[in-house]
Write a protein that binds this DNA or RNA. Structure first.
Lengths: 142, 142
DNA sequence: GGTTGACTTGGAGTTGACTCCAGCGAGTCT
DNA sequence: AGACTCGCTGGAGTCAACTCCAAGTCAACC
């Protein structure tokens, strides 16, 4: 039912140092301890860790997440502020996704250019059947 | 036809310091100078800057781009190595986009929860018609 | 011909996000 | 009891990617 830091580390793929660091800066709520002061992660803690980890992977700043967690700990009264943070972050992620998708298309065109223009030129060179200069790099600078 | 660093800065939204830094570390090919040693950016340089800027925005590491630029300057013989870098980076961007899209869906569900469960509770409080505890935070921890 | 202002360089400093470590304590095995 | 292993804390160190700065050069204007 509850996990040590080693188990959490394995389950979520974060280092023990990172988990302690996250807790220290308030990126996850304080974790319960046993008599000896050793952390005892509950399923609830696990859900937070997963959420934070995914948000970080999506490029959300630690700063914004700390604020969200802090508001959460202040109770129901902060619900709309928290919701607003989520909406803002959602918008930022969506914007990044959009620009990354544009980049994917751009890369696809560029890769295709390599297939159509540059690689055949190389093959000709390899065949040792060179009959003059072909498709120079200068054509591909964007 | 050619631009000063100030014009490039305005056009591409990078600081002059960043532009010089990029050139110094080989993230863009060397830029031509006038008699006095002042940088003279051509349209060709502009294309590189735009490409690099977009790749950086998409999360591609400076490291990988330096390698790409270095290969480019070695001429046609490195075409397939360059193509491979683009393919690798494309894959990494695509993976990031996929996980960000999952996060978008997750956020949408979470935001909807705020609308359905938490916000109505707040409204009831505001109406001062409280008839017992409603929808506590604990229900929303993932 | 002096002042202004954009530009230059090399190097130091900053920021965000970890990552590592020394020194200590608790629990377990032998 | 001694030796291991795991975990704890506070603080220092690292890394990527800039960002800032002092001191100097140069062209242009007054």
């Amino acid at each position: 039912m509850s996990m040590t830091i080693a188990e959490v580390r394995k389950r979520y793929g974060l280092t023990a140092d990172t988990l302690r660091y996250y807790e220290r800066i308030g990126l996850i709520p304080p974790v319960g301890r046993n008599a000896g002061g050793v952390r005892n992660y509950t399923e609830h803690d696990g859900n937070w860790i997963d959420f934070i980890k995914c948000m970080r992977n999506a490029g959300v700043q630690v700063e914004a997440l700390i604020e969200y967690v802090a508001l959460f700990q202040q109770g129901d009264a902060t619900a709309s502020a928290r919701k607003q943070i989520l909406i803002d972050q959602r918008a930022q992620i969506a914007a990044r996704v959009a620009s990354m998708q544009k980049m994917l298309e751009r890369l696809d065109r560029k890769i295709e250019q390599y297939e159509n223009h540059i690689m055949p030129a190389e093959k000709k060179l390899q065949r040792k059947a060179v009959k003059g200069r072909v498709a120079h790099n200068a054509a591909m600078t964007h």
